Simulated assay, not measured.
Amino acid sequence: MTMLPEISLAKLTSDATRSDERGRLQMACQEYGFFYLVEHGIPKEQIAQAIEASRRFFALPQSIKERYGHASQTVYPAVARGYSPLHGEILHPDAHTDPKELFGLGIENEGDRRPFAGITRFPDDALAPGFARSLLVLQATVLNQVVPQIGTALADLIEMEQGWFERHFSPPTLMQRVIRYPARGGTCGKHTDGGFFTLLLQEELPTRSLQVWFHGRWVPAPSLPNSLVVNLGDMFQVLSDDRFKSTPHQVAHSGLTDRISLPFFIYPDIDARLTSRQERHAFSVAEMMLRNMESVENGNGAGRARELQ
């Protein structure tokens, strides 16, 4: 296998093709837990603008970027928002710190004091032209045009009742990141994602940096033009009563240029308490998210990283 399955969002939402495409979605989730999403409708210009603005931000002097680090943020937990420098995070305990830098944001709701909610402190437009604006424009498109359709299809896949996704993800809890992997050695350790699902916008580079664990080996997931990558998270696995697995993945970037990655980690409403279809599992979204964040902060890895050898 050199590529993951392709799923068309246009076909997934069309009355004429929905049934067949949902069958293909089920196969992709059962076999891989990862797939490319094509015909997704996100304007290429929005993606390009976000990538270019992010490059300008990461090119700023280190002292300026660090003004917008976790310590300067008012969201709880602080590590959910703002700048993290190279070697500032551990996604697998055996891999030590990741040589990558990132900036985290979420849905901007002033006055919301719940975990993972509130306002991100961004550099202004004079320092980082277009940075906040382009990321938030892209966020609005993803949340309005992609997340509801994919989320509803995935909820149907695990046989949740009609309207379940809309009820528990209106709004979702979002952890959005922009990540820079340096040339010739940017990595992130093997891990699983903690949410319901993840949407990833990859730069279209010739290097095959993203790697997916498949049938006992690491398989590259190269950049496919005009596509997103979607993968299942730990919450999806729990809510499916383990019928579907959150697939381990890692990044090993050996390219001659930096790589910009734009992941959107989609979680249910932070106040939700959810039960799996067969009632084998129940959990608080806030408690599960905070527990996973604490594991990363303590160097114990993300998601099911500790299970991965």
Results as ranks from 00 to 15, higher is better:
Leu201Tyr: 14
Trp213Gly: 04
Ile179Gln: 03
Phe196Met: 14
Cys188Phe: 10
Arg177Ala: 13
His191Cys: 10
Leu199Asn: 07
Asp193Arg: 09
Gly189His: 01
Gln211Arg: 13
Gly186Tyr: 00
Phe196Lys: 09
Glu204Gly: 02
Trp213Ile: 10
Ala183Pro: 08
Gly194Phe: 14
Lys190Leu: 09
Glu204Trp: 03
Arg184Glu: 13
Gly186Arg: 09
His191Ser: 10
Val178Pro: 00
Ile179Trp: 02
Gly185Arg: 06
Cys188Ile: 14
Gly189Ser: 10
Tyr181Ser: 01
Ala183Lys: 15
Thr198Cys: 11
Thr187Gly: 00
Gln211Tyr: 07
Leu200Thr: 11
Asp193Leu: 11
Gln202Asp: 02
Trp213Asn: 03
Leu205Ile: 14
Gly186Gln: 01
Gly189Val: 09
Arg208Gln: 15
Arg177Phe: 10
Phe197His: 03
Glu203Trp: 00
Thr187Pro: 04
Arg184Thr: 08
Leu200Ile: 15
His191Met: 11
Leu205Arg: 14
Arg208Lys: 15
Asp193Gly: 08
Phe196Ala: 04
Thr187Phe: 02
Ala183Tyr: 05
Lys190Val: 14
Gly186Ser: 08
Gln202Met: 12
Leu201His: 14
Arg184Ile: 05
His191Asn: 07
Gln211Val: 12
Thr207Glu: 15
Gly185Lys: 05
Gly195Glu: 11
Gly185Val: 09
Gln202Gly: 01
Cys188Tyr: 06
Gly186Ala: 03
Arg184Pro: 05
Ala183His: 11
Arg180Ile: 07
Phe196Asp: 01
Phe196Trp: 15
Gly195Phe: 12
Gly185His: 08
Thr207Ser: 14
Ser209Val: 01
Gly185Tyr: 05
Pro182Trp: 02
Leu201Gly: 05
Gly189Trp: 01
Phe197Trp: 10
His191Asp: 03
Val212Gln: 04
Glu203Asn: 06
Trp213Glu: 05
Glu203Ala: 05
Thr187Lys: 13
Tyr181Trp: 02
Leu205Met: 12
Thr198Pro: 12
Gln211Glu: 15
Phe196Tyr: 15
Ser209Trp: 00
Leu201Asp: 03
Lys190Cys: 12
Thr207Asp: 14
Gln211Asn: 12
Leu205Phe: 02
Gln202Trp: 01
Gln202Pro: 00
Leu200Met: 12
Ile179Asn: 09
Leu201Ala: 13
Gln202Leu: 03
Lys190Glu: 15
Val212Ser: 04
Lys190Phe: 10
Thr192Val: 12
Gln211Trp: 08
Leu199Met: 13
Glu204Cys: 12
Trp213Ser: 04
Trp213Val: 11
Cys188Trp: 01
